[in-house]
Amino acid sequence: MSSIFAQRRQKLLALKALRGTPTASPHAVERCPSCQGEFTRRELVAGRYVCPLCGHHYPVGAYYRLSMVLDKGTFRELDEALASADPLEFPGYDSKLEQAQGRTGMNEAVVTAVGRMGGVKVAVGAMDSRFFMGSMSAALGEKVTRLVEYAGKNRLPLILFSASGGARMQEGILSLMQMAKTAAALEQFSRRGGLYISVLTHPTTGGVTASFASLGDIMLAEPGALIGFAGPRVIQQTIGEDLPEGFQRSEYLLEHGFLDAIVPRGQLRSTILQLLRLHGKEVDQDGK
């Protein structure tokens, strides 16, 4: 796998993973938004954007996330050029899309790819909450559906990292229909024996929770992630009382039976490799 192409692919992914992250000095002081503790930027980056003091998981971009889990030099992006066409001609959406695309260097809030983990070929997708809060557009639904179909056709395990604020309001009903489309594709994939590992990251809410994110054979989540259908503010307004501490967090979902495990970011790759082995895939010993 150390062909010149693999090296170039790895460099490209590393470059993309860096895009949109602040170019602060490694000695700059960072303050954890959760525990308020202080540490250097170098420590934060070395710990994969997990607070070295309290374990708070910072949101990370899609390319960075994929670079963390895939074998080096194996990332090959699918449908990179798919983007939203502003189907409802919604006022102001066009320019907001352009801004988001310029800022993130992505065309949509999900990156889908084929790659290898421990030498095992996998279909993998990661959502990026910096792009329209990771909301579900028709283009996002289409990319996820194509990934599921690709995995089915090539008999690959499917791994999806979700992060979403819910529906893309500017695409209205067509956003809603993506829930049915992705769920249908996953049902077909599942009936043909496909393995789907769903990893929920902060935040996973709304239509993504009520469709593809909740349909994994194996359900994993990063610690402390907000996961739910309705947003906490809406629930609070509906019931008119304060919500309990930790409500709709990963730990709450685990306790209520909706997750198999909570996995810290540093152990995600090894956990997925173990699951691949347990499903009969021949994973390299060192996982490369």
Partner: peptide
């Protein structure tokens, strides 16, 4: 329904499973 118990019992999963089952 956006309620506390509805979330505790997996509103998102319940809807997702409805979609998956009815699709097939």
């Amino acid at each position: 329904y956006p309620g506390l118990e509805a979330e505790a019992r997996g509103q998102g999963e319940a809807i997702a499973r409805c979609l998956a089952i009815s699709s097939a």
